[in-house]
């Protein structure tokens, strides 16, 4: 164990003053130190994407980033997607199109898709599948995830 470092993480607009070891991943810090357990950890080696969050407008795998690297950056997690009772179009589209089953990978897919569509609202179907192949889902066979993201993309362009 090494010395802990004090830092502030800004998650969904709220500051969390925490003290963590330098080796602590952003994923662990979000979940355990900031109590935002909507971000899930599926592999801890950057393949499955369950831990995807948006850091300064880019989707990142929070298991591959240290918490200390995220200080001063704007972090968005699944808990910040909805506006009160109003779901984000991506959340609504996943519900409408059966884009989730067990729901474990869902927060990662939501953040990946939102992050990419905010950057590239007119993304082609082919590029979209490229992007969505970054994350793993074991339940849905991706069919309805792709359908959900396409539906949300239309909604987000409005």
């Amino acid at each position: 164990m090494s010395e802990k470092t004090a830092l502030t993480l800004t998650i969904n607009g709220k500051d969390h003053a925490i003290s963590v070891e330098p080796r602590r991943t952003l994923a662990d810090a979000i979940r355990e130190d900031c109590g935002q357990t909507g971000t899930h950890i599926g592999c801890e080696h950057g393949v499955c994407g369950a831990c995807t969050v948006i850091v300064d407008d880019a989707p990142v795998r929070s298991c591959l980033m240290f918490a200390v690297q995220a200080e001063g950056k704007k972090i968005r997690t699944v808990e910040g997607l909805a506006d009160g009772d109003t779901l984000h179009p991506m959340q609504q589209a996943f519900m409408d199109n059966h884009g989730l089953q067990c729901g474990f990978c869902t927060p990662g897919f939501l953040m990946l898709a939102v992050g990419v569509l905010e950057r590239e609202p007119d993304i082609s179907d082919e590029d979209l599948i490229d992007v969505l192949s970054s994350n793993l889902c074991r339940c849905t066979g991706y069919q309805n995830i792709i359908k959900s993201v396409r539906a949300a993309a239309q909604e987000m362009r409005k």
């Binding site: 979940r31 909507g38 899930h40 950890i41 699944v78 808990e79 997607l81 959340q91 409408d96 869902t106």
Partner: peptide, 21 residues
């Protein structure tokens, strides 16, 4: 019909074992 399971899960409010302190 839409699934009754989904509202919590899409909000990141699912409760999984590893979420417990």
């Amino acid at each position: 019909i839409r699934r009754l399971e989904d509202p919590a899960l899409v909000r990141g409010k699912g409760r999984f074992t590893a979420d417990l302190p």
